[in-house]
Amino acid sequence: MAVDDKMVARVAGLARLTLSAQEVPHLTAELNNILGWIDQLQAVETGDVQPMATVMPITRDWRADVVTDGAIQSDVLANAPEARHGFFAVPKVIE
């Protein structure tokens, strides 16, 4: 399955990667190269094989419903590019 520039631009939009006009055709070619290579999987007979659900087939106890965390506002905000009044601040979202 090949992608075109339009698809690459759409995928970049979904992934929130701003691409320049020059980057798009370049990436289109690269992705087609890689996708062409991984397309060989389509030839594998998978019939009614169940997809792998978990790497190791384990079960384990769930967490008990107790408060063990939180109250670390300064840690949460410590690396923020912009924090104000205890909040993370971002460019204004217009709804």
């Binding site: 949460v76 912009e82 104000r84 993370f88 601040a89 971002v90 460019p91 217009i94």
Partner: peptide, 14 residues
């Protein structure tokens, strides 16, 4: 997200 506390910023509370 809180949009009305600043003229140019939205504030995020998690």
């Amino acid at each position: 997200s809180i949009h009305d506390l600043s003229p140019d910023r939205s504030y995020v509370d998690l």
